[in-house]
Design a protein around this nucleic acid. Structure first.
Length: 519
RNA sequence: GGGGCGGUAGCUCAGCUGGUUAGAGCAGCGGACUCAUAAUCCGCCGGUCACGGGUUCGAACCCCGUCCGCCCUACCA
């Protein structure tokens, strides 16, 4: 059960130069559902998201567009990234930008401490640098170029030439933490989830870690290295620190102690930064490592991974404009086992929308509310004598409440939804079996009719509470149609079946109307 | 080269440390019902569990090998 303890959960901060696609929205939605669920269970919850705004790529794009990098970042944050949160209905508690003083100042504070404590040294680095990747590439990462770059070695990811750079760099002695990291993975098997992601990380660290170059002097769009302002901090080193600068690191010890450590939800492509580099940085600074790092899978479109660099992404609005934000949230979290890759297709989305949301849940709500209006004049009925069938519904309400909460505690979002859906299906079956419309034809069956409708009504309310994190809009509409008091998101989800019934139902517009033509 | 993950009904996927006739959802087919968003409920159809060996009383699950897909990592150059 929830005990009011701290639950701090983060998304990665997104690189503002990218265009938001459904992969970004997927990460946001998954994290938001975990946060909403914990919040609704009474945990001291905090959800953080934000944007990563430094680095050479942004500087170059801004210059090409004739504006300062700060102006460029401002523009993208307001035109693309904040709207994304609205599009998929994210209830984040904070939004951090790496260009904010609260971040930059404390990145410097963190770095200075590592420097003072001997974790940083001066070195020389030479290598092939890919501007697109913001990192030096190994030879193996290079492939022969084609087309206009024929004859040159190009980055395998961006298919653009790399640059041979040599610079004085400051290095973080990450190699010194190899053993401590392995011990961490050993002692806390769930530190990296899922299992497949953990295996990758462990085998990587077992090969031994190199020290990490953490500064750049070839451009200046970044956080200044405090003891050498001719260098700026490497963008990843800078970015990772958002997780602590956003909750008071260095300035508000009370807040920091209350929130940290966090659960990090990330795409598996950036797992290593979060499961290796980041804990090593924290160890060096004498801070707690995260509670856990969960690497979710990729969305596959036509069997291929969506790529942020190659713009094969689908915009979230394409989906929400037709199906709504609730459907977006439901679809990606129920259809994909959280942690695995998942296939997206319009056909599958449409099929699941109609089968599960429209015909399953939406229609269930509609038939129950309508019958109470028609047979009870809208007045919420109460139970008389309970049959086994009635008791089975009540028992199931508790079962799925417990099962879904347990699943959420394992980050098994899809399992939580599947558990709740057992109640949706059971209630549809219950109505078919009990046939309240038949009972209504004979006044002698009045008590039984009211009992059946009361049981169904109660189950529907439990669904509203349980589905609130996933379908916040629909759940709120349903809650109000049920005539229940307060806001649905304020109802304790870990005991959803104990909600307080209302006295009168109100008309309910279709929660998930059928959608006839899909592009 | 080393390593990881995966290859299960038309589609998307479950199948924990091996144990009776391999499961679900969707799609398809048939029936019941009418409160409801032409919705719901029931039943049926449907698989040589990538392939070849092996271990075992018994393997989708363990071992060896092969093929295919994706990913991580190295190196020769």
């Amino acid at each position: 059960m929830a005990d009011g303890s701290s639950f701090y959960v983060t998304t990665p901060i997104f690189y503002v130069n990218d265009v938001p696609h459904i992969g970004h929205a997927y990460t946001e939605v998954a994290t938001d559902v975990l946060a909403r669920w914990h919040r609704q269970a009474g945990d001291d919850t905090w959800m953080l998201t934000g944007t990563d705004e430094h680095g050479q790529k942004i500087l170059r794009t801004a210059t090409a567009n004739g504006v300062t990098p700060q102006e460029w970042a401002d523009r993208l944050v307001s035109s693309a990234w904040l709207p994304l949160l609205q599009t998929v209905n994210i209830a984040n508690d904070d939004f951090i930008r790496t260009t904010e003083p609260r971040h930059e100042e404390n990145v410097q504070r963190f770095l200075q401490k590592l420097y003072d404590d001997g974790h940083i040294y001066t070195g020389e680095y030479e290598g092939h640098y890919c501007v697109g990747c913001e990192e030096y590439k190994q030879d193996a990462d290079l492939v022969p170029g084609t087309g206009e770059y024929a004859g040159q070695e190009v980055c395998a990811i961006h298919s653009k030439p790399v640059e041979l750079l040599q610079e004085k760099n400051y290095f973080f002695r990450m190699s010194a933490f190899t053993q401590r990291l392995l011990t961490l993975y050993e002692e806390r098997p769930d530190f990296v989830q899922p299992e497949s992601a953990r295996n990758e990380v462990v085998s990587f660290v077992r090969q031994g870690l190199d020290d990490l170059s953490i500064s750049r002097s070839t451009f200046d769009w970044g956080v200044k290295v405090p003891w050498d302002d001719s260098h700026v901090v490497y963008v990843w080193f800078d970015a990772l620190l958002n997780y602590i600068t956003a909750v008071g690191y260095g300035v508000d010890e009370e807040e920091f102690a209350r929130r940290w450590p966090a659960h990090h939800i990330v795409g598996k492509d950036i797992l290593r930064f979060h499961a290796v580099i980041w804990p090593a940085m924290l160890m060096a600074a004498g801070l707690d490592v995260p509670r856990g790092v969960f690497g979710h899978g990729w969305l596959l479109v036509g069997g291929e991974k969506m790529s942020k660099s190659k713009l094969t992404g689908i915009m979230p609005e394409h989906i929400t404009d037709t199906f709504g934000s609730d459907a977006f949230r439901y679809y990606f979290l129920s259809a994909i086992s959280f942690g695995s890759d998942g296939s997206f297709s319009w056909e599958d989305l449409s099929a699941r929308y109609h089968a599960e949301l429209a015909n399953g849940f939406g229609n269930l709500a509609s038939r129950i509310i309508t019958m109470i209006e028609r047979y009870c004049d809208g007045s919420v009925p109460s139970v008389a004598v309970l049959t086994d069938a009635d008791a089975a519904i009540s028992a199931l309400e508790k079962t799925v409440t417990d099962a879904s909460w347990q699943a959420i505690n394992r980050c098994a979002i899809h399992e939580a939804i599947a558990a709740v859906w057992e109640l949706v299906n059971a209630l549809n079956g219950y109505l078919t079996t009990e046939q309240p419309w038949m009972l209504a034809k004979n006044p002698e069956n009045r008590a039984r009719l009211e009992t059946v409708l009361a049981v169904a009504y109660h189950g529907l309310g439990t669904l509203a509470v349980l589905l609130s994190p996933i379908l916040p809009t629909a759940a709120a509409k349903l809650w109000s149609a049920l005539g229940a008091a307060g806001l649905v998101q304020e109802q304790r989800i870990d005991r959803a079946y104990q909600w307080s019934v209302g006295t009168r139902v109100a008309q309910l517009a279709g929660l998930f109307p059928r959608i006839e033509a899909v592009e």
